[in-house]
Design a protein around this nucleic acid. Structure first.
Length: 667
RNA sequence: AGUGGGAUGGGGCAGUCUGGAGUGCCCGCCGGGCUCAUAACCCGGAGGUCGGUAGUUCAAAUCUACCUCCCACUACCA
């Protein structure tokens, strides 16, 4: 029996899981379940990274202890795993002092003894959110401060004496190991990325911090209580401590066959981790599987449906098999992909229900009815043999793809098996043979029942619930991979009852069209130049709801005098945003033609507070429209009239008009 | 503007690493068949110079260079 050790990354637990975590769990689960079917001795490790400073900060905000926060959030991650049917062998928590700490300290000591850990004074720009140091050119400058591009917060200048790891020692060794696939990074584009990064030169990295900076949370450095280990040093070690390290039993599983991670943490896994292991004299893992990120279709969708981003709510709404299927078939295995609820429904109905579910159902119902729920005798003809041979060839393809971890490609082929079976059903017309030639009919159904059995095996890693249901209907134990393609169902044994595998889902109705943007007449009562920006004015508006401040980039087009006291169209429900330090509560509408002429749309003849509306459309203003959504709204000027999505805008019965600009856009 | 990802019959996507007749999947359209099945299934058809240009090659959707357009994150666009 071959051992197979697979891991997921361990996420920070400062917040609840999102769909990206689920993608990683599900992908890992498919690979693990596949290897279990092949009767490998599988160990699937997942867990939670609890020693991060982010956790400390999140807990402080909530006014609870870090331990309490970890307990709460880790429980949610475990619940998510259960709800999505993730069959892991162990869930490691890195704050567990008995399980995790000794192994990490052991790895530290081995690196230390090998001369790769040394003390150095370090001064640098540090982002608390990222928990890492940045170089100046990696940051945005704002006044005298440097801003973290990820967190939009000023970084801190920190100077202290830390322990460092001699990463520079391993540069050539890493290029050799990764370049020759000894430590194989998949897909290859990620491998190339990493190699070119290493070739630029590796710098030693800090692997500890002062106890104060770590708020006393984390793993103390051996023989130096004043220092806490860098969270990545400790987190990466989970792959060893999770299987018992430093106890020798870890050797039952190590080296890891596959680490599954997201693209954002490739560097840690492709460079730091193997270097640490080389230094400690521990064997390297064999494969690093890097998946992409998920985007959620349109801000609009997630807002109007509210719950779509929360995987726990999603799985209450749809079956876990439907979501698993979408994640595995609709998202490229190694690239970024998009999640959309309407496509989830479409995929469920067209592929799961109509293809796989229908095949299983029609076969079972047929056997139930015409053969009294027993498995009929068979006598294959040439065409049957050919069909079966062809299917077996596809089984081989699937196995090959799965051995290369090409999860989506394998799934496509599995659905082909089902489609072919539907075709076989259709062409052989057993419903006719049932009356004319019962023996032939029996053969057809026997072949089909075996296809159903094969599909039970094939689909099980992807959709375990569906796999279980298939075997339950066939009234047999779940079968292993080696039974694939065999006509192994026992003649005359009893079948179970046909049962629906996947429920059909209702299509989402397209939202009725409505006007979501709230436009109102307001008057500029004060105007001055933005002290820190060349192109921006700061204007005070008199509105029906009192005075508001907005910022506009009109310096190049209008003088202050020209704008003062003008009545303009104000976007009332635009999400306020800071522009160069000044909070802008909305914006005014200005038209622009192709020559670059700009005209602020003027509303002199109207009253402050008048609404600008699309006639015959329901005015259903959103609370807030963020700028991205606003940009998607298609404003247009046509023959001096203002339109949104080809629908004209009015104030009462009077159309909104420009003076100079005939045709153009509005922003 | 910077970085990343795209551009493949009407829509949505695979295929591109490892070049070999435009192959495939889901939807839509047209025509036919079937009635075992969750109005499901099956067959046939229309529809594409695989974003553009130049190159490498016996052979390019696939490799190389340049260009155009879209999307995402970022930026004195509010």
């Amino acid at each position: 029996m071959k051992k197979f050790y697979i891991t997921t990354a361990i996420p920070y637990v400062n917040a609840a899981p999102h769909l990206g975590h689920i993608l990683e769990y599900v992908q890992t689960d498919v690979i693990a379940r596949y290897h279990r079917l092949k009767e490998d001795d599988v160990f699937f490790l997942t867990g939670a990274d609890e020693n991060s400073l982010k956790n400390v900060q999140a807990a402080e905000k909530l006014g609870i202890t870090t331990k309490e926060l970890c307990n709460i959030n880790t429980a949610i991650f475990i619940e998510a795993c259960n709800k999505y049917n993730i069959l892991y062998n162990h869930f490691i928590r890195t704050s567990n002092e008995e399980e995790h700490f000794p192994g990490v300290k052991q790895i530290w000591n081995l690196c230390y003894e090998n001369g790769d850990i040394y003390k150095k004074k370090y001064k640098g720009l540090y982002c608390v959110g990222c928990e890492c140091f940045y170089k100046e050119d990696e940051l945005e400058k704002q006044g005298d401060n440097y801003i973290c591009p990820e967190h939009k917060k000023p970084v801190e200048i920190i100077e202290e004496e830390n322990y460092f790891f001699k990463l520079s020692n391993y540069q050539n060794k890493l290029i050799e190991l990764i370049g020759n696939d000894i430590y194989k990074i998949i897909p290859e584009s990620r491998k190339n990325e990493i190699i070119s990064f290493i070739e630029k030169g590796l710098e030693d990295f800090s692997i500890s911090r002062s106890k104060e900076r770590a708020h006393g949370w984390g793993i103390p450095v051996p023989n130096d209580e004043s220092q806490i280990m860098y969270v990545w040093y400790d987190a990466l070690s989970n792959y060893l401590t999770g299987i018992g390290y430093p106890n020798d039993k870890y050797k039952n599983w190590w080296p890891a066959d596959i680490h599954v991670i997201g693209k954002g943490i490739t560097r840690f896994h492709a460079i730091y981790w193997p270097a640490m292991l080389l230094s400690a004299g521990i064997e390297l893992p064999k494969n690093l599987f890097v998946h992409g990120y998920i985007t959620i279709e349109g801000e609009k969708m997630s807002k109007s449906l509210g719950n779509i981003k929360d995987p726990l709510k999603l799985v209450d709404k749809y079956s876990r098999d439907s979501i698993r299927y979408y994640l595995l078939s609709g998202i490229p295995t190694f690239l970024d992909g998009d999640f959309s609820e309407s496509r989830l429904i479409e995929t469920n109905n067209n592929e799961l229900v109509a293809n796989l579910g229908n095949l299983v159902n029609r076969t079972m119902v047929f056997a139930n009815r015409y053969f009294d729920s027993t498995i009929p005798e068979y006598n294959l003809n040439e065409k049957d043999e050919e069909f079966i041979k062809n299917q077996k060839q596809i089984h081989k393809d699937i196995e090959e793809k799965l051995n290369e971890n090409k999860i989506r490609e394998a799934l496509d082929k599995i659905m082909l098996i089902s489609r072919n079976s539907n075709q076989y059903f259709q062409e052989n017309e057993p419903w006719k043979e049932a009356k004319e030639n019962k023996k032939r009919c029996g053969t057809i159904i026997y072949v089909l029942l075996n296809q159903v059995k094969d599909l039970g095996i094939l689909i099980y890693p992807y959709l375990p619930d569906a796999g279980d249901k298939i075997f339950k209907q066939l009234n047999i134990e779940n079968k292993k991979w080696d039974e694939l393609g065999k006509l192994s169902l026992n003649i005359d044994s009893n079948l179970g009852k046909a049962e629906i595998l996947f429920n059909k889902l209702e299509e989402i109705k397209k939202d009725e069209e409505r006007q979501e943007i709230d436009l109102e007449v307001a008057q500029i009562i004060e105007i001055k130049k933005h002290p820190e920006a060349d192109k921006l004015y700061i204007e005070k508006l008199k509105t029906a709801n009192g005075e508001k401040t907005i910022v506009s980039g009109l310096v190049d087009y209008y003088s202050e005098e020209e704008l003062l006291n003008k009545k303009i169209i104000w976007v009332k429900n635009l999400k306020p945003a800071k522009l160069k330090g000044i909070l802008s509560e909305g914006m005014l509408l200005a038209a622009e033609d192709e020559e670059g002429n700009v005209e602020v749309i003027n509303c002199e003849e109207f009253e402050i507070g008048d609404k600008i509306i699309i006639q015959n459309l329901k005015q259903d203003y959103k609370k807030e429209i963020d700028f991205k959504e606003f940009q998607k709204i298609k404003f247009k000027i046509k023959n001096k009239n203002l339109f949104i999505n080809e629908k004209q805008l009015f104030i009462g019965e009077i159309p909104v008009k420009t003076v100079k600009i005939e045709n153009g856009k509005v922003s």
